[in-house]
Design a protein around this nucleic acid. Sequence first.
DNA 1: CTGAAAGCGCTAACAC
DNA 2: GTGTTAGCGCTTTCAG
Lengths: 333, 333
Amino acid sequence: MARIGIREVAALAGVSMGTVSHYLNHPSRVSAEKAVRIQAAIDKLGFVRNNAGRQLRLGRSTTMAYIVPDVSNPFFATIAEGVEQRASEAGLSVFLANSGGRRAREDSYLELFQEHGVLGILVASPEPIEDRLAAIQKKGTPSVLVGQLAASPGQPSVSIDDVSGGYLAARHLIDIGCRRLAFVGGPLSVRQVADRLQGASRAVRETGSATLEIIDVEPRVISVGHKVGAEIAGRPEANRPDGVFTVNDMLGIGLVQTLVTSGVRVPDEIAVIGYDDIEYAENSLVPLASIRPPHQEFGIAAVDLLLVMVEEKESDLHRVFAPELVIRRSAER
Amino acid sequence: MARIGIREVAALAGVSMGTVSHYLNHPSRVSAEKAVRIQAAIDKLGFVRNNAGRQLRLGRSTTMAYIVPDVSNPFFATIAEGVEQRASEAGLSVFLANSGGRRAREDSYLELFQEHGVLGILVASPEPIEDRLAAIQKKGTPSVLVGQLAASPGQPSVSIDDVSGGYLAARHLIDIGCRRLAFVGGPLSVRQVADRLQGASRAVRETGSATLEIIDVEPRVISVGHKVGAEIAGRPEANRPDGVFTVNDMLGIGLVQTLVTSGVRVPDEIAVIGYDDIEYAENSLVPLASIRPPHQEFGIAAVDLLLVMVEEKESDLHRVFAPELVIRRSAER
DNA sequence: CTGAAAGCGCTAACAC
DNA sequence: GTGTTAGCGCTTTCAG
């Protein structure tokens, strides 16, 4: 099949290439009669505008990229919703890329998107990445770091105040009467984990009469929650915590399952609260209380920040969101 | 910042544009000495190759697209793994797009990717889409339908044999001694649901002595599983099924949770088997037996089919995969 | 309102 | 091994 271009359309419609282009980009400037003829030719020939030519000529693109470590993680997926919504409002398209958390793949996508001349890149990464983003920035492609507060000057970011999230969780446990708290999750070398613990710790300190036990486990998955649950259920009652804050919902879900099936009453004997408010939290055996980050707004803010950068060339904005406490049966008394 | 092009690099390295291009595309044909000078210039200037120019000149792209209804669905996400792996082996990049199952978004991505001149498009969609793919095909962009067997001639697809999956599930329940089976899930207008039921039905028919009750519910989420569980647990024992096949794992997880907390023993009184083998199945209260589609190979096959189409222009290949039975405690006796 | 023509950045064919 | 050059398809002045 011969590739159909604007030239062929023009020929069939009996107008010049310029007029076809006008019709495509400024329809109002073309007479109704020719517009009809042009559209007919487009349909007849199955013309599709060639973006390479267009972009080459224009020198800019209306596409942005969002690189995530794991698309199937509901956390990133829900942010993506916000990103796409806001982008589409701004007349932009979003290319998603899945880095699998692997640095090499991350780099290759970063390179790819630069070559494609995207307007900008949103990046969520478990890897240290700010150096690379700075380099890319210098070459003309702006980026926004998603999910962690950027440290380098000139690097915008949207993030969540995990200290405050940890505080909220522990504070709530204390408010409903818990005094022997436990924090489940690790490793503390992960910033988010450390921050959540720090917040929880502050709430405990404020209270004075409460204690905080740290159960440092990883990875943060359901099956580890099961193990921790079995361990706690196996203790003499006096040694058990009466309120547990798990650093994410997976751990919380596993923990609650094992506690309940071991005959420990949740929340009466042990109250549990998770973090992230994933879909399964709401639907677990005992609906799991959790800390909810504002996913959608998060994505929206990321796009907005990117647009600001594009307009103003330089910027160093950070948006830090406050998470929200979601009370459910696992932490109600 | 003045845009850096191949021209600037050439000037700084003291060679011609052609040599720089050669260095970029056929490094072996450039003398070592100049190669060094060119690379130095590239680094110094922060040169990034402009894909628009390249693609315009070459007339082809090394990018493909994968459009899914919901990236966060582990089913599609795992397929994406396979897609990316195979694509990268073939020297291709993958752009992911999230249609949200909305037809308008689907169309706009379809259009976008055509304009970008991608090599081809992989599409998973809950919507009828073959007509649109045929139109796109005619305009020069091949596609592979992912997740359902294509009906139109000339439209390749990769799909799962859901009839056989349903058969496997019911057959297993019968094999471990169940005789009063129930199928949970709907609506039957969804092809996958209907196929799974059909397979289950065949297994029951083959047996003669078994019965199959249909509990037609939707949506297929955990909370609906809870409801069904409560309903079943509330029946007089004689009226309860002794083996349940849920059309997906979410329903199965919810069902098992409620049965167990209502005092019904799983699998002794009621065995349960789900479908899809999502991560949570393995880690639910009672590990859930399930039917596992071969996600990874699925993605690999999709890319391979696309590559065949690109080479041979026309094709009408279909790959239908057999799912696999994963036995876990919820269906062991 | 329409047409003619220049040129975006790059690659490959060709000449040296 | 290296340089020169002709477009790839499109948009946008600029003239008419």
